[in-house]
Design a protein around this nucleic acid. Sequence first.
DNA 1: GCCGTTTTCGGCCCGACTGTTTTCAGTCG
Length: 572
Amino acid sequence: MNKKQIIDRLDTIAMYLEIKGENSFKVAAYHRAGLALENDPRSMAGIQNLSEIKGIGRSTAQVIEELMSSGESTVLKKLEQEIPSSLLELLSLPGLGGKKIGKLYRELAVTDRASLQEACDQGKISQLAGFGKKTEEHLLELLKQRQHRPEILPIPYMLEVAEQIARVLQSIEAVNRFSHAGSLRRAKEKMKDLDFVVETTDPEKVAEELLARLQIHQVVGRGDAKMTIQLDDPNHVSVDFRFATTETYASMLLHFTGSKEHNVLLRRLAKERDEKISEYGVEREDGTTRVFQSETEFYRYFGLNFIPPQAREGKDELELAKKGPLNLVCPSDIKGDLHMHSTWSDGSHTIEEMAEAMRKKGYQYACLTDHSRSLRVANGLSVERLSQQIRKVAEINEMYDDFTLFAGIEMDILPDGSLDYPDDILSQLDFVIASIHSSFTQDQKQIMKRLENACRNPYVRLIAHPTGRMLGKRHGYAVDVDKLIAIAAETGTALELNASRHRLDLSSKWLKKVQDAGVKISIDTDSHSLKMLDDMELGVQTAVRGGIRPKTVINTLPLNELKQFFKQKKPV
DNA sequence: GCCGTTTTCGGCCCGACTGTTTTCAGTCG
């Protein structure tokens, strides 16, 4: 049984327990155990001692071990006998939780959508204590909506939606400032909804304007402090708006950025000093509430250094923040972008336009890396065109004294493992990236042979988008990432953190391992247009999620040091 | 069920909103 299946089983157990009316902390414990597994980059086989993982204790470890060895779970089986499995799907209906479903089951023998429908039709729901006419109507409405909206949506999709909302918020006069919060601000790859914290003196007005200007499917809830809507887009994305004042803005942003776990830990810190954190600030023993200008000030109040949103996940970063600055990479560390395309291959802008945009961004340098000759669909460069391009890059460099454009290539690693240009061509380039763009479905052995061959070439400095995944679209090829990291370490090859919102590859969960192995990473946008340059920020956020320090990242090097790095021979 | 540089027992974040209620439970994040 693979990891994903095990996590699913743990969640299923949690859902059964919820309907059974078990202690909510017990329910949460099973969810947390699943989450802990998910956040651990190791495969099931690579995990020696389960209960060493935070969040997995004796009982959950036992369940997991049983699932691994037999594919079954005694705990789960017992629950399946007690409670009809068809009840689980009712949990996905908003407004129905474990307690209500349990009651419907015990008192009205509701077991699935059909019997729930029947109970509604017969008016039995509204007769039940704690239920009423409105609940019955609400349920009928939910049951009518056949199509389920996806529970979890990928970041590229959600970023687009968030950017649209941001434009609307920007145009509303009553809005002083705003920020996205929640999972998106923490740069999670998948999320359930969008959160915005909005500073205003007139929440009523802002809510009205939002309702007028956004395409709304449904207003889920609306009060003085918050509004929840579902957008009228194909996925009915759910969006929370929280209204803050100037005084509460920082606390509210912190609170709604989470993670939940991070908030719990902060509140625990506060509790030790007899203080209480809420989204409005810190309530002290004497009953007064302390408010903050910024999140930095908030952290400082508790003796902590600032923790960037993307690092707010667990306990480790909190401990580190007690001791000193976290020293994680930040946007201003990035001195250039080493992976981009021009109209010479499949980019939409000329080399000049790309270079100028990079320079305007404040970069010291950039590297042009069009596609190589075998990638015909992308108009890959023949040897001759590549030579022309190298000359072109030299010309462009003469235009600038404050910016350097390097000549590079994104070279295909061919299906048989050979490389798309011979070494004497590669030796003419400043920077060679190698990547896979074909035969994605090869088995792991062959994929690894290709990647290893590329790493062992003396001119290949970077493997781009190492797993080839596209978020929300495809999983990527069969890479043994652990092995790739080992090979990269041995050969002195860097691995990319492709910052494109569609890729984020390698993902944050692998990055720590890369850093620990002493392998360098390069955070690149792989831009095919000017707009895509802005994904660098997302790339840096992803690096922060992975705990990456500036020194690990090639393109934090100042120009001269980068030049030296390019000149260094690989140990292969 | 998990966890512990005070704790192996007793906590476990806390508030908004809704719908059901005359003061609160359930759900959600």
